[in-house]
């Protein structure tokens, strides 16, 4: 075996050096991960609670010198932001609820039959091939014709977010439905329940943990989504495009406060939902 010859051929000294080098590499990578995650976050939080002068100073201040709640007060005082916050929550809850229902239907059909599985995976991977921009521009035109473009309620955006979240919901729920033993459904069938009744009162309650996880994941997907929101809500913005405008037009303080605010639900959910999220991330492989 090549491995054996290779390993045995190494002198003890070389082996020790290799191990030391690997140990060093491990420390460097760990340190890199911690720095890449925490230092930028610290700076963002710092910018959100210090006067803009400290951020614009050259060189910029690394530590807060004066603390101020002004930026958070600003973003809550400005009507544009309050509207965006409510809109983001509304779009998120509405699209996540609809996507979870549709995703549950698809996942159930995928878990209960080979043809359903094939069509389901084809739909899920097929829609993934469409670039956002090729959909968003003509969709904007179509929504304008239906009078749904850039509505204050952001109904058009909610419909899109629902459609792009269905694969996430379906892949999160698929394993849960597949894990339900067929004997349980058969027992309900022998008791005279219809297939729809079995789905509603046997399968759905048994999968409720996964359903909650799917809903939360779809909500986060919508909360974070930037491209469609930018193109479809040009004036009645949700939070991500609003943050984009604040950033590009140089409102450092409010932009940082808004960024901190946007981060909170996502970070809580990802850390709390770690294992579930991991499963669905592995299945979709997308951001």
């Amino acid at each position: 075996m090549g491995a054996a010859a290779n390993g045995a051929g190494m002198s003890a000294l070389t082996q020790r050096r290799t191990r030391a080098a690997l140990e060093a590499a491990r420390w460097i990578l760990s340190a890199l991960a911690i720095i890449a995650a925490l230092v930028p976050l610290y700076l963002l939080v710092k910018q959100s609670i210090t006067p803009e002068l400290e951020t614009f100073a050259w060189p910029p201040k690394w530590y807060p010198h004066h603390l101020t709640p002004a930026h958070f007060e600003t973003i809550f005082a400005v009507g544009e932001l309050r509207g965006a916050l409510i809109r983001s929550i509304g779009v998120g809850v509405g699209s996540a609820a609809a996507a979870t229902i549709l995703g549950a239907m698809l996942a159930y059909a995928m878990a209960r039959g080979p043809s359903g599985r094939k069509i389901g995976f084809a739909a899920v991977s097929g829609t993934r091939l469409l670039p956002m921009i090729s959909v968003a521009i003509p969709l904007g035109i179509a929504l304008a014709m239906l009078d749904l473009y850039d509505q204050p309620s952001a109904i058009g955006l909610a419909i899109v977010h629902c459609a792009i979240a269905v694969p996430t919901a379906a892949l999160t729920l698929y394993a849960a439905f597949a894990a339900i033993a067929p004997e349980i459904e058969e027992a309900a069938w022998l008791d005279g329940a219809s297939p729809l009744r079995i789905f509603l009162s046997v399968d759905l309650p048994m999968a409720r943990g996964a359903i909650a996880a799917a809903f939360v994941l779809c909500f986060i997907l919508s909360w974070d989504e930037f491209g469609f929101a930018l193109l479809l809500q040009q004036t009645n913005r949700t939070l991500p495009p609003l943050l984009y405008y604040y950033t590009t037009f140089g409102n450092v303080g409010p932009a940082s406060a808004l960024a901190v605010l946007m981060m909170i639900p996502a970070v809580i959910v990802v850390i709390a939902l770690g294992p579930v999220l991991r499963g669905s991330t592995l299945a979709t492989g997308t951001r």
Partner: peptide, 23 residues
Amino acid sequence: VEVAAILPFAIPEIVILTLARYL
């Protein structure tokens, strides 16, 4: 290290990009 390694993915994309711009 585990939490730090997953954190950049937990942060909304637009927040990461805002941050990157300031950096």
